[in-house]
């Protein structure tokens, strides 16, 4: 045996994890189709939920690909696609500043208020 590490959990069977490049030096010459993020509404009454991403040349193609990749088994009644570069995001790894304001405002929660048990419909 080689002593090389193989992980069985590479899906359909063991794949080596050593001696395998994790990135190329420099990108290929071909210009890639832009990356789109895909959101699917599972059924009426629910929000659109992020399900993953795909590449497409334009919006119309992105919608068609989203249907084929993410809704082969009635997973959705509506799809949104948006180019990934248009998504503005907070960074979850930046500690506190973004979400800290909600931490010390316990009075925003109904459980902050004590009301006698025998008051109905509260």
């Amino acid at each position: 045996m080689s002593g090389q590490d193989f992980t069985a959990e590479g899906g359909h069977g063991a794949v080596p994890l050593e001696g395998v490049p994790a990135a190329k030096a420099g990108h290929g010459s071909e210009r890639e189709w832009p990356l789109y993020e895909v959101f699917v509404r599972g059924k009426r009454g629910l929000n659109h939920v992020h399900v993953g991403s795909l590449h497409a040349a334009d919006d119309e193609m992105a919608l068609r690909h989203a249907r084929d990749v993410y809704t082969r088994r009635n997973e959705g009644v509506s799809v949104w696609v948006v180019q990934a570069r248009h998504v503005a995001a907070s960074s979850p790894d930046e500690k506190d500043p973004m979400f800290a304001p909600s931490g010390d405002k316990v009075y925003r929660h109904p459980t902050f208020y004590s009301i006698p048990d025998d008051v109905p419909h509260m």
Binding site: G3, A8, H12, G13
Partner: peptide, 13 residues
């Protein structure tokens, strides 16, 4: 074989 070599031969597991 899909599960990969025996554990004693998988150093990074």
């Amino acid at each position: 074989m899909m599960f990969g070599p025996p554990d004693e031969d998988s150093p990074n597991t």
